[in-house]
Design a binder for these strands. Structure first.
Lengths: 284, 284
DNA sequence: AATTGATGGTTCATTAATTGAACCGACGCC
DNA sequence: GGCGTCGGTTCAATTAATGAACCATCAATT
C-alpha cells in the first residue's frame, strides 16, 4: 500500500482536512499531530514537527506539552524527540476489552490470508478515512503487497474506502466529497460525481473493487462489515499484485469476503442490512 | 485493586489534577474526558459526561465532537452514547510496533504470575500516576486480587507508584507532592514529607512495599524498570492478599522482581543505574 | 392529554484562551 | 569566532473557547 510519506512534500494536516482548516479546533489540531508518527517515523523532534504540521513552533510545543501531560506522547530523555505515549496503550486496552473488534477480526483475516496467501486487511471507518485495524501479510517468498498499518487510507482511493462510501453512513460520502479528491494514480477517482456513481454501483454489486487506484500494481477487493446500526463499520479487503488477479481468483475472493464479512458482523453483534444480504451470495 | 469509580462522588478531573485546573489547556481537558471510560463504563452519554467531568455541557459536547472527528471517540448510532474510538487502536499499534513494551513485559509478567500464582502487573509512569500496561491474574480458585487495567494508579498510594517516586524522574515526585494526597485507607501516605522520606528509603532498599495503602487486604511489592535515561520508566509489582504475605514469600517476591526488572530493562534496551544495581542482589 | 424531567444538541455575547513573531541559550560544525 | 539548528520561551494581539439560556424530542407520570 502506498503510504502518505511517499507522496512527496505536502502537509499531512492539509491532506487530512482537505485544506479545510476552518472548523478545526485546538483539540483536533493537537490530535492530528499524533498522525505524523508511523513505523518509519517513530520519533519526531520539535522543529521537525513544526515543519511537518505547518503550525507555529510555539503552538506545536504547547500542544506537545499538553499531549505529554495526558500521556499521549512522551519525550525521549536522551534526544528530546517526541514519541507516542503510554496512555494510548491503556485506552486501547479498555476499548478492546469493552468493544473487541481487533481480536474478532484477527482470526478471520488470518484465515483468509492463509487460504489465499495474499495480503488481507480490515479497517474501520473514521471520517473520510479508513483506520487500519489489523492485517496479515502472507509472505510466500514471491511478490507481496506491503501494508502500513500506521497510515490512514483515503476513502475515495481504496477498495475498502469505496466500500465504506457505498455501505457506510451518508456522512462518510459527504465528508469525502466535501474536499478535493487527491490523485494517487491514473485510476484514482478524483471526480466526486463519478465517485458517487461508483459507490452506487458498488452498493448494487455487493463488493468494492479497485485496480491500481491507490498504488500501482495493486488490485484490491473489499466488502463491508457491520456492527450496530445499519451502516458499515468497516471493511475487509484482499490486496494482490495485479498480475495475480484474474476472473477466477476474483470470484473466489468475493465469495470468501462475503462469508467472512457476514461472520465478522455476526460476531460483532450486528446484522447485515437486508438490501445488502439479498445481493450477497452467502452460504455453501 | 481499588478503582476510582468506587471512591464515591468526586470529580475524576479534579482528582487527576489535584484540584489544580490552572495550567490545564483545552487539549488536556478534552483528553481527560477519555479517562472516564472504563471496563464498567464503556459508553457515556452527553449529560452523564457533563456530570462526570464538571465541565459545561456545551464544552463537553464540542470536545466530544472534536474527539469524534479525530476518531478518539465514536458515537453509538442507536443510543447516541459515546465510546472510545478506533484511532486509539491504530495509534496503539504504531506505538507497540515501534516501541514494544507491552509485548516485552507480557512474557515476564506471565512467568512471574505462573510461578507465584498471584496477580502481577506492570505499569508505566504517566505524570503523577501509573498507567497500567499489562497484568496477569492467576486464578487458582482461592481469593484473588482484582485489577482494573483501565484505571490509573496514584503514585503516592501504590507500591508501583512509590517505586516510580523513588526511582523515577524528580518531576514525578514534584507532580505528586504538588497536590493534595488523597487518602484511600488507613495506611495511605498523605503527608508529602513522609512520602519523600519513604521514597528515599525505598531507593536505599531497592524495592517498594505497600501494605494496604490503596486497598484493604492487599499487600503489594514493586520494583522499577528502566529503558532510556536514568529514571524509571515503569514498575512491575506483585499484589497478594495480606494473609498470604510473610517474610519468606516476601523475599522470594523481591528477588524474583529484581531479576525480572533487570531482564525487562535489558530487553527494552536500557540499563539499571549503577546505584540501583549495587543494591539489587541479582543473579545466583 | 398535559406535565414533568430527562435526554442530545444549539446559540451568541462575553471572556479567557490560543496564537505567532521574535528572542534566548546551547550545541555542533566549519 | 561565526553560522545554522536545535529545544524552549516571551508577550502583545486577537482569535477561539466558554457558559447561561434555549430548543426539540422522547418517556414516564399525573
Amino acid at each position: 500500500m502506498q503510504t502518505y510519506e511517499r507522496q512527496g512534500k505536502f502537509r499531512l494536516l492539509q491532506f487530512l482536512t482537505g485544506f479545510d482548516d476552518s472548523g478545526m479546533g485546538t483539540i483536533s489540531k493537537a490530535l492530528y499531530l499524533l498522525d505524523h508518527f508511523s513505523q518509519s517515523t517513530p520519533e519526531i523532534g520539535l522543529s521537525e514537527f513544526q515543519r511537518l504540521s505547518d503550525l507555529n513552533k510555539a503552538t506545536v510545543y504547547r500542544h506537545l506539552v499538553e499531549l505529554e501531560k495526558t500521556g499521549f506522547v512522551e519525550q525521549n530523555p536522551n534526544t528530546r524527540k517526541y514519541r507516542l505515549g503510554a496512555a494510548i496503550l491503556r485506552l486501547a486496552s479498555v476499548r478492546e476489552r469493552t468493544f473487541p473488534m481487533r481480536s474478532v477480526v484477527e482470526h478471520h483475516v488470518d484465515k483468509l490470508s492463509a487460504r489465499f496467501k495474499e495480503l488481507v486487511h480490515a479497517s474501520l471507518v473514521q471520517g473520510s478515512f479508513m483506520s487500519p485495524l489489523y492485517f496479515k501479510d502472507y509472505g510466500d517468498g514471491g511478490t507481496r503487497v506491503y501494508f502500513n498499518e500506521a497510515q490512514l487510507l483515503p476513502t475515495h482511493a481504496t477498495a475498502s474506502g469505496i466500500a465504506a462510501l457505498a455501505f457506510g453512513s451518508p456522512s462518510v460520502l459527504k465528508a469525502t466529497t466535501s474536499k478535493e479528491l487527491q490523485r494517487f494514480t491514473q485510476n484514482t477517482i478524483v471526480d466526486s460525481d463519478i465517485l458517487k456513481q461508483r459507490a452506487a454501483e458498488v452498493r448494487s454489486i455487493g463488493f468494492s473493487e479497485c485496480d491500481q487506484c491507490f498504488e500501482a500494481e495493486i488490485h484490491s477487493i473489499a466488502v463491508p462489515f457491520f456492527s450496530d446500526g445499519i451502516f458499515a463499520k468497516g471493511a475487509i479487503a484482499i490486496a494482490v499484485p495485479t498480475t495475480r488477479m484474474n476472473d477466477d481468483a476474483k470470484h473466489q475472493f468475493i465469495r470468501a469476503l462475503w462469508t467472512t464479512a457476514n461472520d465478522i458482523t455476526t460476531e460483532l453483534g450486528g446484522q447485515i442490512p437486508s438490501e445488502v444480504k439479498s445481493v450477497w451470495k452467502l452460504g455453501k
